[in-house]
């Protein structure tokens, strides 16, 4: 899409590089709730393209990092996308986040946010990662529906009540959240800061207790999604953009919750928040 100076900028920047592959359904999910999302290649933000295609992050109300296999998941999932962003976009991104703009990373996007030090960011954005999303304990790619419980509110999940359980699929090989050697101390801080937003659970909402397949990857404390202390950056492994319509739910013949799939509420929350602050 080419924009002229008079055009309104889209609400959301859906950022991608080679290997990102969930951008189209993510864009559709935003448009389904009335938000205009533009697919933007990282080179467009870095100015490494023809003039008409150049974009500035500050022109958007939100940054979305969709799922996929950016840069082939080489080194570690998300590491190369994160390094490319940090190398030339670091200050702009820092300003964007510290100004309170929304950032959502799903699956590979969550891995990128963690590698970039934007999550968990206990003391602001960190230069080196302070957490990791590493290989699933099963050592297998996990593609399955999961149940996740909303345990702390953020602007990106405002239309969910605390304790709500939604069914959202995961599809990843590296989704096991860990703090490594500092696990106990860091997990305590994450809990105390109310930074855990979603936890894997059983169908009835009871704890998964780190047991497979309810917890599909072995994440500590059944962590499925976390936010930063300021609550405007959210990363989650499950894919809400894949369950926008009821027909995408595994139990669509058994439940009648209207036309919406369980993931739609995340995008509705974002739309509600962005429209309220305009």
């Amino acid at each position: 899409m080419l924009l002229t100076g008079n055009d309104k900028m889209p609400d959301v920047c859906v950022l991608l590089i080679e290997g990102t592959n969930c951008e189209k359904e993510t864009q559709e999910a935003f448009s389904g709730v009335g938000l205009d999302a533009e697919l933007v290649h990282l080179k467009q933000l870095l100015g490494d393209c023809e003039r008409q295609r150049k974009r500035r992050l500050s022109d958007y109300g939100m940054l979305m990092l969709p799922g996929g296999w950016s840069a082939g998941d080489y080194i570690r999932a998300g590491a190369i996308f994160a390094a490319r962003m940090k190398s030339k976009l670091g200050d702009e991104l820092k300003d964007f986040v510290e100004s309170g703009n929304l950032v959502l990373g799903v699956c590979n996007g969550f891995q990128i946010l963690t590698e970039m030090g934007l999550l968990p960011a206990f003391k602001g954005i960190s230069d080196v990662p302070t957490a990791s999303l590493t290989n699933n304990l099963s050592s297998c790619f996990q593609c399955r529906p999961t149940y996740i419980k909303h345990v702390n509110k953020t602007p990106l999940t405002g239309k969910l009540d605390l304790g709500d359980v939604i069914q959202v699929p995961v599809a990843h090989a590296e989704g096991r959240f860990t703090f490594g050697e500092k696990q106990d101390m860091m997990l305590k801080q994450l809990i105390e800061n109310n930074q855990i937003v979603f936890r894997y659970c059983r169908v009835d909402g009871s704890e998964a207790q780190e047991i497979y397949p309810w917890n599909p990857n072995g994440s500590i404390y059944d962590i499925a999604g976390i936010c930063n202390p300021e609550r405007n950056v959210l990363g989650l492994m499950p894919h809400p953009e894949r369950v926008i319509n009821r027909l995408q739910m595994t139990d669509w013949t058994r439940k009648d919750n209207g036309d919406a799939g369980d993931g739609r509420v995340v995008f509705e929350s974002i739309a509600g928040y962005l429209k309220a602050i305009v």
Partner: peptide
Amino acid sequence: ARRLLANPVI
């Protein structure tokens, strides 16, 4: 190695 190749957490 510190900036890209290794994640010091793990």
